[in-house]
Design a protein around this nucleic acid. Structure first.
Lengths: 145, 145
DNA sequence: TTAAAACCTATAGTAACTAGAGGTTCAAGT
DNA sequence: ACTTGAACCTCTAGTTACTATAGGTTTTAA
């Protein structure tokens, strides 16, 4: 039998992966990760393998993947063959939604900039922010989501 | 006394403002809007003034303002003087958060594009999506939110 | 008159956390 | 060895902006 590396409690795991303790517990509840074992006092203990798993999850979350997508990616990681196409599909779909969201935000940004700049240019005839929000004809063409 | 215009039930208001009925009820609960009165059968009835209010809320939501911010803007709309500066501050702050979010999404997009293009270029050495997610050194510098 | 549409309130779910309460275990210092 | 504070535990509920469902009432149109 191999000598086991020392296991770490949740706080150490948390610091190593830069993920909060309650979030790790939440991920356990969502079946994304599990402790290697528990101590006699029922405290979770994790190996290096779990740390790698958590870092994977964190990286994917930082990129905006949903927990459902991450669960799928974890399952795909374990498949010997043919998983790559599915992983690629998940990533490509997510990339597409990021692009869509980017376009939306660009449009919002332009309208907000216009709204804010009217005030800053010294318009004295009322409140341009509130008037712009009350003006629906101007915006109706511009954000159909 | 002036002749009142006919009041409309919630479904008519919903269609006129393109906001769902449950969402209107939710906005009422959040103190953003209230029915003019109720019918004998306890159904909400709204005037043209409430329609204008709902359109204001919709427009602001479409621009990404939070309900809290919208509540503040509505209060500011009623103030005779000095409200403009506060409204401008709310809008400018929101514009800033949109810009920050845009920059984040650009960074995410680039990393996802790189991840996806490796697969598409015919790399045969494993799954580039999953490997990239497991590779934390590459990403750690790139998305510090 | 009848049936369907529209209305009502109340509750719970969505996604991804986050906070707080009340209790137990562990680690470090004396 | 004892004490105390930190770290751990489970459970419940809150955050934000909706959305869905259940079960009932009212209104409308045929």
């Amino acid at each position: 039998m191999e000598r086991k590396a020392p296991l770490m409690p949740i706080g150490r795991l948390s610091k190593a992966a830069n993920v909060k303790v309650p979030t790790i517990r939440y991920y356990e509840q969502q079946d994304l990760i599990a402790a290697t074992c528990r101590s006699e006092g029922n405290q979770r203990l994790y190996s290096e393998k779990e740390l790698q798993r958590l870092r994977f999850i964190k990286h994917a979350r930082d990129l905006g993947f949903s927990l459902d997508d991450i669960r799928d990616l974890i399952l795909l990681e374990r498949q010997p063959e043919g998983a790559c196409k599915s992983a690629h599909l998940i990533a490509a779909r997510h990339l597409q939604s990021v692009c869509i969201r980017l376009a939306q935000l660009e449009r919002l940004k332009h309208e907000l900039e216009r709204m804010v700049s009217l005030t800053e240019s010294g318009e004295d005839q009322g409140c341009s922010v509130i008037e712009a929000l009350a003006d629906h004809m101007k915006c109706e063409d511009e954000h159909h989501d």
